[in-house]
Structure formats: C-alpha cells, structure tokens
Amino acid sequence: MELIKGETSPAVWLAAAEHLNGLKKSEDFDVILHIAQPTVFSIEDRRVHDEVDAFLKSHGAFGIHTVAETIFPFDEYQRAGKAGLFGPFPEKLKAIQKARSDGNWGSYAYRILRQRDAKGKIFNPLQYMLIKIKKHGKYRASFELGPGSPMEDEIQIYDPATDRGRLYGGPCLSHLSIKVHDGQVRFNATYRSHYYVRRLLGNLVGLGRLQFFLAHEAGLKVGPLTVNSTFARLDTGSGEGSGGHWTKAEAKALIDRCRVIYDKSALAA
C-alpha cells in the first residue's frame, strides 16, 4: 500500500511509476494517488506527457489522448458541445465499437453516457449528475449555509449483468465517486486493476477532462482527483493489438528520462 500525492497528473504518474519500479515484482496493492490540480500542466508536465506519449505510440500502444477519450470524449465535447455529447454521440460510439476489433474501446465513455435503470429504461448518468450538481450549487448559493454539506453521488461503471462472467477484459475502472464541496467538483475513482505504463497517465488526463466538463457546465471549479488502484502494475504492454510491448528496461529508461525533465527544471530554478 502506498499514498502518492502531488500537484499535477504527470508528476503523480512519475512518482507512482517510480514506486512500482522500486518493488521486486513491479506491482503493488492499494496504491492511492492524489492529484491536487488534475487539469493543470506546467511546461515540464507537458514535456513528460509528450515523452510518455511518444514512447507508447512508438511501441504500438494507444497514445495518451486516445486512452483519455475512452473515459470522456473531449473531442466530441469541443466539436458539438453538451447537446451533441448527450444526444447522438453515444449511438455513434456504439457503431465505432462494433466496427473495431477491440470492441471494448470507449466502453467507459458509453457507460457514463448510457445505462439502464432497474426497469430497463435507458438513461444518461452524466446528464443526471450534471442536473444534480447544478441544483446543489443553487441551493447553497440561495441559502448561504457556509461551507455546507458536500453533495455526494456516484456513477457505477462495473455492470454485473455483462461483466460478471469475464476473467479478463472487463472494465478496469469500476467506480467513480463525485463530490461537490466549497465550489469544487472532486473525483474519487477506483480501479480493480491498473496498468501504470500503458494506461495510467491517459486515465488521469481523461478523468481530469471529465471533471472539467462537470465543473465548467455547472459554473464550478475543478477540485482534486483521487485514484485508488486496488492492484497496480508497471506493465510491459499486452503484446497484442493496441496494448503495445516493451521491456522492463525500456520502461525504466522512460521513467529515468521523465525524472531528468523535472530535475533539470528544479536545478534551473
């Protein structure tokens, strides 16, 4: 178990990767990551982001943006706004999934935008979440209750109806808890299994974009992001499809290059 705290997603990614790299099997249980500013990037953060992105793409894996889009389709949000995101996009995403060999691509985004209730009726969890956040904000603003009680809600990602029979290949992101407090949207995400080279930084970017969406649309600020990796692994890729492949030595070299980026900045300061 390890708690890793930092200001930005790339900085926390690097510290987490270094933690796993220092362990005998390069894996650990219950690694807690806390990012104070998940949507803020310094110049050094951007360089680390680009270093990791180039590494993933050159080794046959999805780049950071592609991984982030599986959580929140920021491209679609920029292109068509909230109406496009809530309206036709989920059906477009389903069509994309059917056409791809890796049919699970984008399943997080789809589950955040489309689920069935107990009666089998389709609803949009993210849309209802935004409505509740807006109502909570108006309530506090109207009644001036000081700090007030935080609004709490959750989006369940794991679906036992479709996922219970899978030994592998199910959603690694299983649960997303959202809280609004002191004018900030706070996230807590739970991963049942987490690949720290090919997925983690993209996951952090995607979750930060989802936070930004809710905060921006509700007129609030982006708060901290906490991630609970119940099992974390410094992976070497899947060796197939878009998972890429690299050696442990190559992963370590990537980590070392990223640390040099931050160290040079610290020395210059």
Rank of each mutant, 00 (worst) to 15 (best):
L201R: 03
W246S: 04
F213H: 08
L201T: 05
R199S: 10
W246Q: 07
A218S: 15
F212Q: 15
K248T: 06
S242T: 14
K248P: 02
A218P: 01
L204W: 00
F212G: 08
L225W: 02
H216M: 06
V222R: 00
G223R: 04
S238K: 10
L210R: 02
S238R: 14
A249M: 05
V227K: 06
L254I: 10
S242I: 07
L225G: 02
G206E: 12
K252I: 09
G239P: 04
R199T: 04
R199N: 15
G241A: 15
L210V: 07
E250T: 09
G243R: 10
K252V: 11
P224M: 04
G244K: 08
H245E: 04
W246I: 14
E240I: 14
K221C: 01
P224V: 03
L200P: 00
E240G: 11
A232V: 00
R199W: 00
E217Y: 11
F212D: 11
R199V: 05
L254H: 10
G244N: 08
G244W: 13
Y196T: 15
E250N: 10
F213S: 03
N203P: 02
L204N: 00
A215P: 13
G237K: 13
G206C: 08
E217F: 10
K221Y: 04
T236G: 08
L225R: 02
L220G: 04
K252G: 00
L204M: 15
G219F: 04
R198M: 13
G219L: 12
V197K: 01
L214W: 03
F213E: 07
A232N: 02
S229Y: 05
V205P: 00
K248G: 05
G223T: 09
A249H: 06
G239V: 13
R198F: 06
F213Q: 11
S238P: 00
L234T: 07
G243A: 09
V197N: 07
D235A: 06
R209Y: 13
Q211D: 09
G243Q: 07
G208F: 11
R199G: 00
L234F: 09
L234S: 06
T236E: 07
R198A: 05
K252L: 14
T247Y: 03
S242W: 07
A215M: 03
L234R: 15
A218R: 01
K248I: 01
G208A: 13
R209T: 04
A215L: 04
V227F: 10
G219H: 11
L234E: 02
V197F: 02
S242H: 12
L200M: 14
E217S: 01
K221M: 07
L207H: 09
H216A: 15
R198V: 03
T236P: 06
N203Y: 08
E217L: 10
